[in-house]
Design a protein around this nucleic acid. Structure first.
Lengths: 190, 190
DNA sequence: ATTATCTATAGATCTATAGATAATGC
DNA sequence: ATTATCTATAGATCTATAGATAATGC
């Protein structure tokens, strides 16, 4: 029943990754620890040897999901002709819209995280928000630094809001309109 | 124990309003029917005489909250010097950010609604999204009608995303930056 | 000997239903 | 007689804990 320290570490990581997917897919309250552990190939009794509480797992899963997402976007823009357009079109793509379990956690869980009474969780979201803002800022060509910062703040807002709206409406045309119009708005020359 | 038809109707409305507040405050899964009924001054056993299921209440509460919110914005802009600026500054105000229970349901519950397996609920959000788009479109002064529509789509996205981001970060300064930068972005002349 | 994981369970929820009760409204 | 609301409860969750088990690692 016991496994090696390395295997235990791999198991722990698998729990975090399963949780990160399942939380985004079903919400923090929509999935139990039993199912998270089962998705990681374990039984629910072993959970508290690795984590202090569900709250603890929520924090770790969000930190992992947000950071890995950001790294993915970083890689994507690094190899692109037009890095800003590459980021915007990737973020506002039908693929991203249709796969929340692997997508942006601000959209999938930001509102839920905001109302949790857990300052550490909101700190995780804040740190990652700054990371995304820095990423975006680096892709902008505004003359002044404050202008770039403000444009990054507004652009991130537009991206997050458009993805959210594109997911909640039923009509595929209206959904696509949100993605298209938001991309044009963010990419417009000024 | 029985009450008059009019009182029963008032009770039902009170349940819907309590639910609309509590869902926005705690999430669809974060509040039980018992507490919703208690907030309306009733006991949980009477719930199913008025509603078919919790799903049914979720739909009705969201329809009510979204429509009443839209009406409120409509009244606000009707009496304003600069209707667009009035809407944008009201929506992106610290008051709105700090009172999700009375605020925009797209931000508080859009992501949760999007993942529910309930087409009727997403239809409610879609109908109200069109209502908000029409409202915004009427405040814009772009020359062509398609340009106004696209700007409405992008502006609504920016508003929703900025309010969400302003709620999830911990630092009051960063939170205010989202609100301020997004408002400037939406209101910029073009 | 230590410990990662397992089975089993306590105690607190939650949705939904059953049947009793008492006031309305024909 | 009808019915809006009440009390009580069934059955299914959920988080967290207790104690057993068996493989690791000193």
């Amino acid at each position: 029943m016991k496994v090696s320290r390395e295997q235990a570490e791999r198991n722990r990581r698998e729990v975090v990754h399963s949780a990160a997917r399942l939380f985004r897919e079903r919400g923090f309250d929509g999935i139990g620890l039993g199912e998270v552990m089962r998705a990681a190939g374990l039984t629910h009794g072993g959970f508290y040897k690795q984590f202090a509480s569900k709250e603890d797992l929520v924090r770790e899963a969000m930190s992992c999901a947000l950071e890995r997402g950001r790294m993915k976007w970083n890689e994507r823009v690094a190899g692109a002709d037009d890095p800003l357009a590459s980021f915007v079109h990737g973020y506002l793509s039908p693929e991203h819209r249709d796969h929340p379990a692997e997508g942006c956690s601000f959209v999938a869980l930001g509102a839920e995280a905001a109302r949790r009474d857990d300052e550490a969780l909101r700190q995780v979201f804040e740190t990652e928000a700054r990371g995304y803002l820095d990423l975006l800022e680096g892709l902008l060509d505004d003359a002044s630094s404050p202008a770039r910062r403000d444009r990054a703040l507004a652009s991130l807002s537009t991206l997050v809001g458009a993805l959210l709206m594109s997911r909640v409406v039923r009509d595929p045309e209206l959904s696509a309109d949100f993605l298209r119009a938001a991309a044009a708005f963010v990419l417009q020359p000024r």
